[in-house]
Amino acid sequence: MVELFDTHVHLNVEQFDEDLEEVIERAKEAGVRWMNVVGFDRETITKAMNLIDRYEFMYATIGWHPVDSVDMKREDLEWIESLATHEKVVAIGETGLDYHWDKSPADVQKRVFKDQIELHKRVNLPLVIHGRDAQEDIATLLEEEGVGEAGGIMHCFSGDVATAERCLAQGMHISFGGPVTFKNAKLPKEVAKIVPLDRLLIETDCPFLSPHPYRGKRNEPARVRIIAEQLAELKGLTLEELSEITTENAKRLFRISS
């Protein structure tokens, strides 16, 4: 029996306003039993909190996206900390560094990232890290600041093997999304092969990064099964084995007992 945990979804964005129930039904049909909804600003955090109160199988990660670091105020961080006491808030993020876009200067991103590293330690929840064109700086900052006992996730990891090993050494899990299925995706496949099974996670990052053969189209949680199939092949496992391993990893990290 295949029971999947999509550890990173954005069902709290406008792309799902019109057909959320249909999307959820397709996910259930594909074997998705649990979802982690990630909020990254005031609006999406509020929507994430509403979703976890509405759906038993949804949990939330709340934080501030690095691209929007310049918009974050001290009261936003305090608000996130107050919401982190909710029993279904399972992680802090997505935070990190993103050098692809130039909205927020690197020094501002690093300051906001450090603030959320400190927050994740205070509330003792895992840290969910977004990285784009910045994996080296992220690994260095994690080594300098240290990761709390709750650990964390390198969300939709796009770095190389050496950087992955540095993040693993800090106690992080490595999560794979749609790009690991792309035909020209040599690097993520190489990384997937070296990640220990007890640190492996799967996600869609929907509505973004749809896996092959849906690349370029709106992504949704049902397609996490395609990612699981690809990782099972890379790891020499059956889909059932891969799904059991990654689901147990997610439930252990997020402290979900049911």
Rank of each mutant, 00 (worst) to 15 (best):
Q116Y: 02
V89K: 09
W34L: 12
F57Q: 06
L97T: 03
N36A: 06
E14C: 00
E81T: 13
G63S: 08
G93Y: 07
E22P: 00
V123L: 04
R74F: 11
D53S: 15
L127P: 00
M72F: 15
L83E: 11
Q109S: 05
H120Q: 12
M49C: 07
D53F: 02
I80C: 13
T95M: 04
D115V: 00
M49T: 04
K110Q: 14
L141E: 15
D115L: 09
Y59E: 06
E21M: 12
V70E: 12
N36P: 00
D19R: 05
I92R: 05
L125H: 11
G39F: 02
R111I: 13
L51P: 00
Q109M: 08
T95H: 01
Q15P: 02
V32I: 08
K121P: 07
H86D: 06
A27H: 08
F16V: 13
Q116E: 11
M58D: 02
H120A: 15
V32D: 01
H120M: 11
W34V: 10
F57M: 04
T95Q: 03
E149W: 01
F113P: 01
L127V: 11
D17S: 15
H100F: 12
L127Y: 01
D107H: 10
E87V: 12
G146I: 09
V70S: 14
F57I: 02
A139H: 04
I24T: 05
E22Q: 14
E21L: 06
